[in-house]
Design a protein around this nucleic acid. Structure first.
Lengths: 224, 224
DNA sequence: TGCATATATTTCGATTTCGTAGTAACTTCG
DNA sequence: CGAAGTTACTACGAAATCGAAATATATGCA
């Protein structure tokens, strides 16, 4: 129904040669019975617990797995975007502008905040994005300190183009879970998010533009 | 039992003023019935689906939540480390050296790969880490091209210090889940990871050093 | 109104990271 | 053995990012 998971943790540009980790010995340690087939995270943790005993393998496992899954997704999207000649942050800017809804504008400061980057960096990036013709900078009539970054038709077009078939990896990653499993997973995660939000601000910008279908193509920061 | 979730998505250094997103209108859209209390991700997606209709809110929700959770964790750790005068990558290097097990050494190339960074960047970082006295560079007797980066007692000490009470945030995030929920969550995630690994290399380095209690204190890359 | 303070964006210099190439050492194979 | 190819690390210049200051505008309050 959906493409298989694209070669998961693919090589990074600077991975020079076969310097990577060697295959693990055939007869490894035992894992808790009743657990489904172990994955590389289990093996990892099993090894690690030799070095550090007071560590909860379950907690460890949960967060490591989330991190790994987020990482694969991010890398896959990066490659996918790069193939279309876009950098991740370029797509992100366009994406957030679309997410903002008509008239598809936002100030540089908000964009900087959404992309988790320094305002000066955003200035630089917007310069380049403007040169590429994907955005315009128009004055804000209501406040002459401000600018509004506006999505151009070209920007909208290239965003759309990359967006169309952008959700494949997510579906591939979720393939082993049936509808019931997915609902369960979503619910468990929601409970964690709500707990995190109980003590502080929302994890996502709670306003017209915060967006994130983003996640259908990229993640917002996660790593910044 | 455990500290509350530390003010979730805390301010970044460059967040200048109250320019952030404004509070959302009181009467929002409706969400699927039977769902537990909505979180900011639900609101986000509800908003987004106006702009882009052909999108599965569930898939969207699952990955967005993972991304957000990973992001909070990462930021909390960053702050925590910074308070102790360590940068994230500094801790990561020390952590991976410990994870490698006795005699706590690794080559620059492997470290670069583990931390998802360019080898030249690692050279630079190791210079600084060596100056701080946390690592030494010793020649590899077996291969005179190679160096071995060795953990010094000072390096081990500062790692230990930061490690001791480093697992609090994870526990706080998992607080709303009882033991059964956690097992379920871990299992669902494991199935996803295994699926991802079926088509490609393991998501984690499968060898003596790949480590990751890392996750107890920091995440390996995720954001690179 | 007038002045102090706050906000939005950009500029500029310093730092960090990256890509590429250089040097040394190892390996393969004739 | 010796030449060609590969791998490991680093040096160097280019590019991106950051922190702090500069500029212009807006807001608050006496």
């Amino acid at each position: 129904m959906v493409s298989r998971v694209s070669a998961a943790m693919t090589r990074r540009p600077w991975r020079t040669g076969p310097s990577g980790p060697r295959p693990v010995a055939a007869a490894g340690p035992r894992y808790p019975v009743g657990m489904s087939e172990p994955d590389s995270v289990d093996r990892h943790i099993a090894h690690w617990s030799r070095e550090l005993s007071d560590l909860d393998p379950q907690i460890e496992g949960i967060f490591t797995r989330m991190q790994m899954l987020v990482k694969v997704l991010r890398r896959t999207k990066d490659r996918w975007l790069a193939a279309g000649g876009l950098k991740h942050w370029e797509f992100q800017v366009l994406h957030h502008l679309v997410a903002a809804g008509p008239p598809y504008r936002a100030t540089p400061s908000l964009l900087a905040e959404w992309l988790d980057t320094h305002p000066a960096t955003m200035t630089n990036r917007l310069d380049r994005l403007e040169q590429s013709g994907y955005v315009d900078r128009v004055p804000d009539p209501g406040d002459r300190r401000r600018l509004l970054v506006a999505l151009t038709p070209a920007g909208r077009a290239i965003w759309q183009e990359r967006m169309d078939d952008g959700g494949l990896e997510e579906q591939a990653l979720l393939a082993p879970l049936d509808p019931g499993d997915r609902e369960l997973l979503d619910d468990l995660l929601r409970r964690m998010v709500r707990a995190a939000e109980a003590d502080g601000p929302p994890l996502m910008p709670d306003w017209p533009s915060g967006s994130d279908t983003e996640n259908r193509m990229s993640n917002r920061g996660t790593d910044g």
